[in-house]
Write a protein that binds this DNA or RNA. Structure first.
Lengths: 190, 190, 190, 190
DNA sequence: AATGAATGAGGATTCATTCAT
DNA sequence: TATGAATGAATCCTCATTCAT
């Protein structure tokens, strides 16, 4: 694997455990089995590492959503598919889920470029889908912007919670339940 | 007001803006208009300040939930009441919402006593209520432990989001919609 | 003495011995018998210390030249007086002389505020005096701007040389000879 | 041209602009269009590059002085000739002038072999000539050792000043004036 | 001979904490 | 109680130097 990716994975692991602020660049270097200096060959500074973690994940999500957009299905099904992908990703890489949840929740001011873009970009995808779905009267009269963000964070938090609480065995069910919960929560009720 | 409370409020304000790690004790002292040394009269260390913020809020929540428990009403109504209180609190003090959401999401290892207790204690209350509600078949067959935590965090996250996105005007509606969303999401569907 | 002055003196001593680049802030702190942190209470950064050394000396020189300007004497006498003061200063504090000579000779780009002002300001004083003297035909038709700078540096270099070469005993004579040398060098010769 | 010479010229250029301490070996490599590693084929370390710059110039000066020594002319004329050569060299390569002036002024302790030798060797030549001249009573009763060094540095400093102040057009005259200044300064006055 | 990716010792700076007043 | 000047451990980042290719 490329050195940059090795560093990204080690950083994700350490930051998940310690939190970004408490993570020492040296610790990442040690885990990645490279010298500290090497990290600075691939990243401008410590923030740059976190930024890259967000960038990598963000690009994956966007690629998937673009793919889904092309397909012909009811908007609410698209939302379901995206939710499933979103959750599946976080389920597969719990460290990543932790980092995205923990470090993505700062004030915009303190966010790096991709952190900002991530917490705007992904919810924006959900937002667009929710609007479509609302137009077709599949879902009730909710504030789609806020709900898009809420849905986005529910996934991250849950992946993180399962991890924290050592409930990895519960994961499959939980994510399915969560998708149902969200779909039920937003569907039009008479 | 007591000095300790003045410091807590200043700390909440600054930490909300900067994040705990980047917050300098000096900045809190400046905002509270006391000397740095004074802070150390009331708090053992920097972590102690954050701990106290969680402690204060946690105690409020517990007091309310104990009050509600005594009353006679269907469990799902209790959940609704607690949710409304939870949201109302965060709505009234957006800085507090930010701090609780941002700093509450660390690894247990890095959490101070009350931070841990807060994210165990409050969800535990929801958990108990959800279990009762499940027994009475008001809600579907969900993993109540996880959902308790999810619901707890949805509140924090949303209060925080509204604040960040500068949508304070949307607040009243959003919180109502959110209560509906959650209640619908968990209710038994045929 | 004020802490800031103690630090300035220690810095002058160490920088004279090691050169600015090789001087460690810790070494200055050790010599001044203060903590490293203390230095940063009084100076913005390492450069700030050097800057202050130049500032302090510059102000002394300007004060003396303003004093001399008020007096009534032939311009060439004023030059002589200023030269003598200039040399005397450097003679009394050889470490200072070294620092001013060594670190004052960088590219403007690398100079701090007062370093720049010093190597412009002091020669400017000589320049003005030389122009006056030239008008009165005391001195020959030389490029006064360049000579002002040359005279300025001769002093610094010489003080420095005497120090380096361990010829402190020669000092008194040398500086007198140097004044004569310069005065003879610039005087009108038939 | 030989690689070593290409590197020497690039180093002279960069060091003149940045100062030795702030010059990065990589920057020299870039300017010389060679790899960093290549530099270490020709020079033991960074100091070695500076040393070589002094060595090259020193050897030129010594060659000329040896040539002049053989000729039959009054000592003061020899001094004049050497001064002219000294100035002409620095005039032709302003970057070199800067480097010699800036980096030649360190404490002996920090000087590399040739840096030391340069500021001992060249002044020694002047010293010898001044002594001869003094014996023939061409010049006054000055401390010839100190004046030799002073004269040596005046040249470097002036070449450097003209460069810094962007007065390249003034050069020819200035150097002539300077020779006159020095000769007048040291000549016997009745 | 030539390269440049990799290294890690070293140094500037920060900031939580203390303690004399 | 209240203060803030002083401290120094801790940490990011740089850059001279090496060495496998």
């Amino acid at each position: 694997m490329k050195k940059k990716e090795i560093i990204r994975l080690s950083a994700t692991k350490i930051i998940a455990k310690e939190g970004f602020c408490k993570t020492k660049v040296q610790a990442i270097a040690d885990d990645a089995e490279v010298g500290v200096g090497t990290i600075y060959l691939y990243f401008k500074n410590k923030d740059g590492i976190l930024d890259y973690i967000f960038e990598a994940q963000h690009k994956k999500m966007v690629a998937f959503s673009e793919d889904i957009e092309k397909r012909d299905m009811p908007p609410i099904e698209k939302i379901k598919k995206l939710l499933e992908f979103h959750f599946k990703e976080l389920e597969n890489d719990p460290n990543l889920a932790k980092v995205l949840a923990q470090e993505g929740s700062g004030t915009p001011k303190n966010k790096t470029k991709w952190m900002k873009y991530d917490s705007i970009g992904i919810p924006a995808i959900f937002h667009k889908m929710l609007d479509e779905s609302k137009k077709k009267e599949e879902i009730g009269n909710i504030d789609t912007e806020i709900f898009a963000a809420v849905i986005f964070f529910i996934g991250r938090e849950t992946a993180y919670l399962l991890q924290i609480k050592g409930m990895r065995d519960k994961q499959y069910n939980t994510f399915q339940e969560l998708v149902t919960f969200i779909i039920n929560g937003i569907k039009k009720h008479d």
